[in-house]
Design a protein around this nucleic acid. Structure first.
Lengths: 202, 202
DNA sequence: GTCATCTTGCACGGTACCGTACCAGATGCC
DNA sequence: GGCATCTGGTACGGTACCGTGCAAGATGAC
């Protein structure tokens, strides 16, 4: 149980590296074959690690899936928030955050699959995904209210739910080729719709 | 293997009734506890039928889930299409079909859960659900192009993906209380956004 | 070099559900 | 009423994966 260096790393460094490798393996497997291809054994094989190290990092498969979703959700939220300028026109601010959202999820399409395709229902992974969506909706509503100087506060809850769900669906459809055009055209179209809704609900 | 009457019904009547009872049981179970609560044995228990009658109606659980999704998807598509007048203003036609969509899914919230919550990934059920969504998007795009007399044809693909995904998310959030207001206010808000997008993308 | 610790591969029983088979009672036909 | 068919309950092996344990080689501390 005590720890010592191994392969030039401390014990906790190795533990962290294994956890990262397992999450990367899960990202790869889900990105390749979706959530149903994911088992504990497959994750360990992909990561080149023994099964017992899985249980060192996670309690069970559901917890690992939840952790993967949390990681990607935090990434896309951070990207969207960081990209948004402190002030500016509604068009500028909307463009910045929509572009960051779309770019983050499509630069590595495995991320889109993790976040936008539904994990097995009923477990912690599904719960974390809905929580992340809820958080995105809440943030969008709050930002929208200030950017558009909303008077219809309640309407912006609904608008936020609509644009978040709609944008997710559109990104999925674009990735699968069901919506045509370049990525910039996708972003421009989404921004136009966000602005149309923002103006209408003001 | 031959058939005869039983309990006042012909053989094929009983077979059809059992299939209906199984689908109703699945609707109830999914509506109550989500997809993960659904097993073959639970369906038979709920329906008061022997397990062998499950295999009379469906090849496996995945096929039964797919059939349930197909049924609800057909219902909501028919409701939306039937409600739409042959001609009228964009506002009238949009209101009619959005109201029908929302009403169908919220009159019996079990339907919303079946159609809007994701089934286990990777099987026929998930495939049928994405196919139904795709069909809804295609229909919405086609109708939108004529109703709004679109010039930007490609843009309406994207708009349809957005409004279908967004409306689904909004209905889910409204059912779960995360979006406030009455059902009429929900419908009015959704229609306003559909119209805003339709006008902008024209 | 020796020994403790780290790592990996493998093996094994447990579990939850599937899919099928069998049995005893109920119902309808003649 | 006798008998074939229909029905529901129960039992049983199969399967896929989980979760844990064990043994054998790799690496580092002393």
């Amino acid at each position: 149980m005590t720890r010592r260096n191994y392969a030039g790393q401390t014990g906790s460094e190795r533990v962290a590296a294994r956890r990262t490798a397992l999450l990367e393996a899960a990202l790869e497997l889900v990105g390749e074959s979706g959530w149903d291809g994911l088992t504990i054994e497959a994750m360990c094989r992909q990561a080149g690690l023994n099964k017992r190290y899985f249980y060192e990092a996670f309690g069970n498969l559901d917890a690992a899936m939840a952790a993967l979703i949390d990681e990607v959700a935090r990434g896309v939220l951070d990207a969207s928030l960081d990209a948004m300028p402190a002030s500016g026109s509604p068009a500028d601010m909307t463009t910045a955050s929509v572009r960051a959202f779309v770019t983050y999820l499509t630069d590595d399409r495995r991320r889109a699959r993790v976040l936008l395709e539904a994990p097995p229902p009923g477990g912690a992974a599904a719960e974390r995904r809905t929580a992340a969506t809820r958080q995105g909706v809440a943030l969008t509503a709050a930002r929208g209210r200030t950017v558009f100087q909303a008077t219809d506060v309640a309407g912006f809850e609904l608008a936020a739910s609509m644009v978040v769900g709609g944008t997710s669906q559109a990104v999925l459809d674009w990735l699968d080729g069901r919506v045509g055009g370049t990525r910039e055209e996708l972003i421009d179209g989404l921004v136009a719709m966000w602005l149309a809704i923002g103006d209408r609900m003001r």
